[in-house]
Computed example of a mutant assay.
Amino acid sequence: MALEHRMRAVIGSVAAVTAIGALMAGCSLESPQAAEGNGQEVQVHEDLRALLPGELRAESTRITVGTESGYPPFEYTNEAGRIVGFEIDLFDAASDRLGLKYTFHDMPFESLLGELYASNVDAIAAAMSDTAERQIDYDFVDYYNDSDAIMVPAGNPGGIKTLKDLCGRPVAVLTGSTQAEALTALNTGDCKAKPVTVTQFDTDADALAQVQAGKADAELTQWSTGAYNAKQVGSGDVFEVANTEVINPTPLGFVFPKGDVELVRAYQASVQSIIDDGTYAEILKKHDLSAGALKTATVNNQAQQ
């Protein structure tokens, strides 16, 4: 990818609107967030930095990274208005080792892949599921395993336990997500005779708010985000995860343009080094996400050759 494409700013602005509190609020593209790190001295790993494309080794170079900040614990805004979370910490650590500066751009989830395809951003860090369909146009550096959660009101008044239990019910979901695709597949399969009424929303927070308002019987989301919200929203007595069985397990990864081989290999090697020296385990523990840990940072769900 040409350097001028790497440095092109995303045009437009968006705020991640939330109906369930400032915890899930987003920030505007008009104030893109530059990485600040954790305040500790950063040690660049020269062997990893050497893997970067030549034009990205200049001290003044900064890439742009698309995200959607309403998706805790992966990305969310803190009280100071900065985007924080597990994936942010991990991307910080990987980028620090590469000696690569970057700026986050917050935008709707459904627009992320299109902005990457158009070279308006250079990478995505947004809890993106690594699927065979997405691999046609993009490359993934996988960093975590996750699955899906069926979010319901606390007490589960509808008695929902499985995806089949959603048949005939109103269900909210994030636009452009693999969970939205799963509901579409459900309506052509197990729920064909009694389809789910699917309503899609720009943010996960908006979808979840439909459950709280009684406008949807459930929301389908990623397990880690669902479990986080079940604990954090209100006093932990507003929502619960209904399913006990694992649904649609899949790796999550940082996303890059298809064929950007050097940048992909650099981030794969950097994430692997973080796994190997225990930094990854520390970041996972900080965010209570150890259950989904990977032993190998894979590319497109395949071990790096």
Rank of each mutant, 00 (worst) to 15 (best):
I11Y: 15
V84W: 05
I88C: 03
G39Q: 07
A303N: 12
T162C: 02
S147C: 12
A269V: 03
N243L: 00
R62D: 07
E30M: 09
A205L: 10
E79S: 12
I160S: 09
L100A: 14
L186Y: 06
Q268L: 01
L289W: 03
A123I: 04
L183M: 05
L51H: 04
M107L: 14
V141G: 03
L52G: 06
L116Q: 08
Y76D: 06
T188Y: 12
A227N: 10
A94W: 02
F91V: 09
T188R: 14
D202S: 15
L163F: 05
I88F: 04
V211Q: 08
T103C: 04
I88S: 14
I11H: 10
N187H: 07
T199L: 08
K231T: 07
D146T: 05
G278Y: 01
D89E: 07
A25P: 01
Q305F: 11
C191L: 13
H287V: 01
L163A: 09
A213D: 07
L263Y: 04
M1H: 15
L174M: 08
R49F: 00
A9W: 03
F140L: 05
A269W: 01
K101F: 05
S129L: 03
Q43F: 15
G278A: 06
K215N: 10
A154V: 13
R134G: 02
A297Q: 08
V84P: 11
A303K: 13
A180P: 05
A266F: 00
E133L: 06
C27V: 14
S235T: 11
V171R: 09
A94K: 07
N187Y: 00
P249T: 06
I83F: 11
L3E: 11
G176W: 05
V171P: 13
F86A: 09
G189P: 12
D92F: 02
